[in-house]
Design a protein around this nucleic acid. Structure first.
Lengths: 195, 195
DNA sequence: CGAGTGACCATATTGTATTTTTAGTCAGTT
DNA sequence: AACTGACTAAAAATACAATATGGTCACTCG
């Protein structure tokens, strides 16, 4: 009851846009280029998306959904919070490295600070933050974690994760994924006070 | 044996430069303006500093030294590591808010990304990092902290501090200094696992 | 002398006029 | 009626003149 049409123009457009945004970034992606890749007239795009920003938001929305699915798949309710967190962060790192679009947008933000690219990255971080916050809340309810502020804790976890995986290596030898996971878990779980 | 000269031109210049960098930032500070404020000929500056960058480095060096003195003064070897850390971070926050130059440079980095301004901020962070690392090493030796990597731990502490005091308030209600100190200490000291 | 100066120079930056590109529209085609 | 691409107004890139700035050095004057 869905693929009645011989060609789904909307899908063509979304896929073409995803490709172009990933290859050239937000700014350098033109509506004409998207229409060319999608093999569609430029006007057709505007029957589905009112603006270039809307089209971009759709792609980012997809990415966030993918992210949630990925995390959901990795989480195992039988395991403890910290093992799940390590797995999720591990997957997140791989996802980030693999996904051209994220890499390209990050670069665009660094190099020319395109507001929409910033916005896209921010939306992804919000998605991840919300997801982690939810896990923290569950773990607190289950009694696995102390009664801490879930929003703030999720925020700190995300910042720490970014710091370890993307900022530390600007000054020192990069850490392996295993090192990151190990350090992250040990610090959060037990703190650093002497036993 | 130092103030033989009726006027210390070098000092005049350094003070004038400090004022100008704090008021206008790195880029908008011109050597001619500095010479005017210092009531000195432009050429005179170059008998003490080979370039504008050198002059700026001197100011940043001073600031880093001030920072170290400040931290040193707050540290009380009788108290435990976490209380000292909280005090130092507290002072650091006040210092940052008070010091025009830091505020101005941060703004310049955000707005136009002046490389030298970035460099200056980076040097200050390195100074703070080194200082914290040293304290961590001492605390580990004293047996107050577990045997963790001091450089990495100091780095994480600094990033967490920046995240809590400067980034969290971009999305949510800002935290008070007390909240920051309390959260910081509790998280680091004990971790978040349930007791 | 020799510490100090400011006119001077080459280069970098900024402002501006001009051209090119691009998001979004819409009359027309199939 | 779904789709198209020539078209337009606005934005961005480019070219270039005008200005501003870091750094030098012949000269001053105490």
């Amino acid at each position: 009851m869905e693929q009645k049409k011989p060609v789904d123009r909307r899908l063509q457009i979304v896929e073409a846009a995803a490709k172009s945004f990933a290859m050239f970034g937000y700014k350098a992606t033109t509506m004409e280029l998207v229409s060319k890749i999608a093999a569609v007239g430029k006007g057709t795009i505007y029957t589905f998306f009112a603006t270039k920003e809307d089209l971009f938001s759709e792609i980012i929305g997809h990415l966030c959904a993918e992210l949630r699915v990925l995390a959901e798949r990795v989480i195992d309710r039988e395991r403890n919070f910290f093992d799940n967190l390590a797995s999720v962060l591990h997957e997140l790192l791989l996802f980030r490295e693999k996904h051209e679009l994220i890499v390209k947008l990050s670069q665009e933000v660094r190099d020319i600070g395109t507001p929409m690219a910033k916005d896209g990255i921010a939306k992804m971080e919000t998605a991840i933050h919300g997801f982690i916050q939810n896990e923290v809340e569950l773990a607190v309810k289950k009694g696995e974690l102390r009664a801490i502020d879930p929003a703030l804790t999720a925020f700190i976890m995300l910042r720490m994760y970014v710091a370890l995986s993307a900022e530390w290596n600007k000054h020192r030898e990069p850490l392996t994924r295993e090192q990151i996971a190990a350090y992250f878990t040990s610090l959060l779980r037990d703190g650093i006070a002497a036993g």
